[in-house]
């Protein structure tokens, strides 16, 4: 037991979840500060989950103004122009989230992932980015790794009826229950850049096809200067050509990245709400584990595809 006791109000409100993770984990949650960038459907789900769970504070970044697309899978924005006129997506989500749990401090700030500096980033314990370019993901992740304290970094994206989560907990120690005893465990994570640079031919057998497909699309968007998710069916020939090149350079059989899958992802870059709920739920759970230091965290990619219905963990690290 460390730190002060939970208040009566907290014990009452969080009763059912304290029965799952214990009072100690609940106290640690209430001291965690979390930053999220890119308020699309999966992130909205994630924010709901951790605000309900009672984290200390949540800071939202998304400068976009509300569009039809921003509304589609996001239940945090009321579809009423008189309410959202002039406000950013982050500001609107902030208003709704505050309402979910008055004990959590929720705020919205203006900014871009590329402009975050160390001073800013080190005020957080967990950073989640979504709808970011390949370069932004790499750079925020690298900055996190240079901070004097350990900050957990996550990326999350949903396209068509698929979703991906990436986790970097750096050198992470946690407690794990084994029968009656609690044992100390340690895991060492690669950064996003390190993970995607692992040569494909040394990957474990049968890595999810989604891993490869999403890397191809990420590279395509970067080469074309597109915003994340800014693709359409007319991009398919270009994407297939890039796939061929990458497969050749990585000595991967092209059959590992089915054209039909790429077609789905390129043609339908919008989110599917049930997948947002699933991915936002898994991510919420993972962040709660990382903050409380309890339970096996996933390492280091998670995939869900509605087509086969599997939620799969892939460990893609350099095992030398």
């Amino acid at each position: 037991m460390d730190g002060e006791e939970l208040t009566e109000q907290e014990t009452q409100l969080y009763d059912r979840q304290i029965r799952v993770w214990g009072a100690d984990a609940q106290r640690r949650l209430s001291k965690a500060h979390i930053l999220v960038c890119g308020m699309k459907g999966a992130v909205a789900e994630f924010c709901k989950n951790i605000v309900l769970a009672g984290i200390g504070s949540l800071t939202l970044v998304d400068n976009r103004l509300v569009t039809e697309e921003a509304l589609s899978a996001n239940f945090l924005i009321p579809p009423d122009e008189s309410v959202f006129g002039g406000k950013t997506v982050a500001e609107l989500c902030c208003d709704s989230l505050k309402d979910f749990n008055p004990m959590v401090r929720v705020s919205a700030i203006k900014g871009e992932p590329s402009s975050f500096d160390e001073e800013f980033l080190k005020t957080f314990d967990v950073i989640v980015v979504s709808c970011c370019s390949l370069a932004e993901k790499k750079s925020v992740n690298e900055k996190c790794r240079k901070l004097p304290k350990r900050v957990s970094f996550y990326t999350v994206d949903c396209r068509d009826s698929c979703g991906e989560i990436f986790v970097d907990l750096q050198d992470y120690k946690y407690a794990k229950k084994k029968l009656e005893d609690t044992v100390e465990c340690q895991l060492s994570y690669p950064s996003f850049e390190e993970a995607i640079s692992v040569p494909w031919k040394v990957h474990p057998r049968k890595v999810s096809k989604l891993f490869y497909a999403l890397r191809v699309i990420e590279r395509f968007e970067e080469a074309e200067g597109r915003n994340p998710g800014e693709t359409s069916v007319s991009d398919l020939p270009g994407v297939l050509k890039l796939k061929k090149e990458i497969c050749e350079s990585q000595s991967l059989n092209e059959a590992h990245i089915p054209n039909a899958l790429l077609e789905r992802l390129v043609t339908n870059p919008t989110e599917f709400p049930p997948v947002c709920a699933i991915i936002g739920g898994i991510l919420g759970q993972e962040v709660i584990k990382a903050v409380s230091g309890k339970g096996d965290p996933l390492k280091n990619f998670f995939y869900f595809d509605t087509v086969d219905g599997k939620g799969i963990i892939e460990d893609i690290s350099n095992r030398s």
Partner: peptide
Amino acid sequence: HAIATTNAI
């Protein structure tokens, strides 16, 4: 025991 995340999933 009940938590929000499992219910959402």
